[in-house]
Each structure stands twice: as structure tokens, then as C-alpha cells.
């Protein structure tokens, strides 16, 4: 699943940043399960959002030509805050979908099928 490949590294980084000590394979299973419920266009949207956060957002919001994974802890915190607070429609659209998937996977109930 292409969207899974786009989202999983971000989900891992997001969970680590939140201090959630998550088993990588369990996180991947939950993310796959959540993504499988969405139609193809929504998965594409989530995947595109993940690529935006991972690669474009650090440059656009912090001026740092690094991926999300390559940022320092404080830079990640700053970036996430700026993404959350950017109310412009394009920015909200870019972040809202991927946040939906990250939030439900990382903060939702544990269990291999998200239940």
C-alpha cells in the first residue's frame, strides 16, 4: 500500500515525539488497518499529506532542508505547532487529513485491528 509507505515513517516519528513507546510492527498493523477502511482517493490524500509533512513542511515552516525525521526534538515540536495553527485553507487541507490518520492510529486504542 503506497499510502502506508508514505505514512508509516511519519507515524513512527510522530509517536516517538509524543513519547509513546510503540512497537513498530503493531503501529504498522494499526495504520494498515485504518487505511484499509478508506477509499483509494482518501488514502492518496493521506499519503500526500504525509509527504508534505515529512519533506515540504520543514522547509516551508522552519526554513530547514531536512525531513521530519532529521529534525531535532524542539524543531519537531515547533513544526507540529505551526502546522496545527496554520489556518489557511490549503495548509489546513494539507495537514488535516494526515493528522486524522496519525491521531487515530497513534492515540487510538491499541490492538492489532484498532479495536
Amino acid at each position: 500500500m503506497i499510502s502506508l509507505a508514505c505514512l508509516l515513517p511519519l507515524a513512527r516519528g510522530y509517536a516517538r515525539h509524543a513519547g509513546l513507546d510503540d512497537d513498530a510492527s503493531a503501529l504498522a498493523a494499526r495504520l494498515r488497518s485504518r487505511l484499509s477502511l478508506a477509499p483509494w482517493w482518501a488514502r492518496a490524500y493521506f499519503g500526500a499529506g504525509a509527504l508534505f509533512v515529512r519533506f515540504a513542511a520543514p522547509l516551508l515552516y522552519l526554513g530547514r532542508a531536512r525531513s521530519f525525521a532529521g529534525l531535532t526534538d524542539e524543531e519537531r515540536e515547533e513544526l507540529l505547532g505551526k502546522l496545527q495553527r496554520d489556518g489557511r485553507p490549503a495548509a489546513r487541507a494539507a495537514f488535516l487529513g494526515v493528522k486524522t490518520m496519525l491521531a487515530v492510529t497513534v492515540y487510538g486504542p491499541r490492538g492489532t485491528d484498532g479495536r
Binding site: 515525539h17 513519547g19 502546522l83 487515530v104 497513534v106 492515540y107 487510538g108 486504542p109 484498532g114
Partner: peptide, 20 residues
């Protein structure tokens, strides 16, 4: 419900984690 609530909190990063 918990599986949906994180996306409705107007915070990110550590602030979100604190409320969750």
C-alpha cells in the same frame, strides 16, 4: 470517543499528548 478525539484537540505535539 478516544479513537477520534485526538484529531479534535486544538493542540499538537506535547500539548496534545498532555491532554490525551
Amino acid at each position: 470517543p478516544p479513537e477520534m478525539s485526538a484529531m479534535t484537540v486544538p493542540l499538537e505535539g506535547r500539548g496534545l499528548k498532555r491532554w490525551m
